[in-house]
Design a protein around this nucleic acid. Structure first.
Lengths: 288, 288
DNA sequence: CGCCAATTTGAGTCCCATCAATATTTGTGG
DNA sequence: CCACAAATATTGATGGGACTCAAATTGGCG
């Protein structure tokens, strides 16, 4: 029989998982076991995973709902089982800064461990199904399954690496390169989830993309239009098609405006876009 | 008797800790116990800390030496016992990006856990004394001392929070604000170490500051000069004096150039700097 | 002392933010 | 279902903040 110690934290009662307390065991998808959780996180399940009887509750959030808020008492980690979210940071003046766009398999809430209060806010961008991992349970797993300890450190380490890459990108790349990489990264994540990495639609606004990349929404919009003009992507509203992913991935800067005007005005209208000079392959100038 | 299992990793032999293998027990400062390590990291020492007989080796690095390199096999974490360093990321084109300036009490190498290879490079900016924590030992501590497990997660969580703050700052602040915050942050860290938080000298070049903040070295230099002109700091080469830390901490943008020219030319030379209008206290405009 | 790295300062340019107007989509209630 | 309001997106014009290129000065160190 499943371990009841990991059952519904009181403060989540209002999120109204569609099951009654007494019938949880009959609801197939509302609880996951340790093996399923490990699979989602892409970490090897420990040897004793199947004997482990702790079960992890699912909670559904509707688009727009907050999973946790800044400053709120920390006690739970969340794993995205389905849906799309954003995490945001709010500075001392109330300005919102997007930090990440979590999706299936991502772990949320780690930033709350340090001060025992969440340092960021997570918002559902679509209906979401989240798995709750009480922090107590999380911490205990390292002791009951020694092999898991490394995996847990690894997941946190991955987050740190990801943020380091973000920092590099923010301070080194041009607007075009930021947007281009954002698109290819999204594509790769969709691929990993089994969807098309070429053709997908954005779940977030231009505003949110801009905030994430350190750009204004107008610049994001203009850049998407430019990449469209250049034939690297096609955009229509939130529907994206990556036409030349490798060019996007290595794009650094569009040529200096002088050159670009010449090329663009003279050539763009005349030639097939795929024949344009490959600006992205030139030697990289030091940016700092 | 100390646990010999944590002794010198073979690949560090070339760093020439000044002790011979046979005389380690006589070298007072070359080894630390668990309690000392916890103290350095500012985490509570576990109950059994004094009975724990594992000892942690110190290694000295001279200014300019690399502690670890990108791609190198990961097996060791490092704690700064004394000295100053930078950690850098090198992008696919060889451009260097400064990620942090670790000093006493900071933990290095966490980013290596994920892929078992360091994702960043650490370079000593001064002579440094580092404590080696073999990752195996680190991971085992969570099991032998249950109270430590939370502390270890907490340290990693803190790193994540710190990087989130960095991301926010990079994409939201002006050059002046970045430099101003950089200085006050440095000051606070020096204070925490028992040094003066008002008066200190920079251990890094303008180039490195610029890389860290996403600015060019010229912009850093000009900004320091401007803050000097405004009377908020005094700079002479790497010697810094914070004259008005609270103004620095809340500074967002200098006034638009038109206004600034008026104010600066007419007022700066005439009035005591402390009486200048408090540009920083105005309502914060949305930046994204 | 002489060399090289680091820093400062200036002049010019450009990328991107800002302000603004319009178009398109989404959502909502009668 | 349509009309209306609100949110989102596109596009243009303009200005400014930071980058780039360049030269001169300072400081550290063998």
């Amino acid at each position: 029989m499943p371990n009841l110690s990991t059952l519904t934290p009181a403060h989540h009662a209002n999120h109204a998982a569609p099951s009654a307390d007494s019938s949880w065991r009959h609801q197939g998808s509302l609880w996951s076991n340790l093996r399923q959780v490990c699979e989602l996180l892409a970490i090897p399940a420990p040897a004793g995973a199947d004997e482990d009887d702790s079960m992890f509750q699912h909670v559904r959030f509707k688009s727009g709902q907050r999973i946790h808020r800044i400053g709120q008492n920390f006690d739970t980690l969340y794993i995205v089982n389905s849906g799309f979210l954003k995490t945001i940071h709010i500075d001392e003046y109330g300005n919102e800064q997007v930090l990440s766009f979590p999706m299936k398999g991502d772990l949320l809430g780690i930033d709350g461990i340090h001060k025992q209060h969440y340092a960021s806010e997570a918002v559902a961008l679509s209906d979401c199904d989240m798995i709750l991992i009480p922090y107590k349970t999380f911490a205990a797993l390292g002791r009951t399954h020694a092999e898991l300890e490394h995996a847990m450190f690894s997941v946190m380490s991955r987050e740190i690496v990801r943020e380091q890459a973000m920092i590099s990108m923010l301070s080194a790349l041009s607007a075009e390169a930021k947007v281009a990489r954002f698109l290819t990264n999204l594509g790769e994540r969709f691929s990993a989830m089994g969807y098309s990495g070429r053709s997908f639609n954005l779940r977030m606004t231009r505003q949110e993309i801009g905030s994430y990349l350190g750009l204004t929404l107008e610049t994001v919009s203009r850049t998407l239009s430019a990449l469209n003009e250049l034939g690297m992507i096609s955009v229509e509203q939130r529907e994206i098609n990556l036409i030349d992913p490798s060019a996007l991935k290595t794009l650094r800067r569009l040529p200096p405006a002088k050159a670009r005007i010449k090329v663009a005005e003279k050539v763009t209208a005349l030639v097939n876009k795929n024949l344009l000079p490959q600006w992205n392959n030139e030697a990289a100038p030091a940016l700092n």
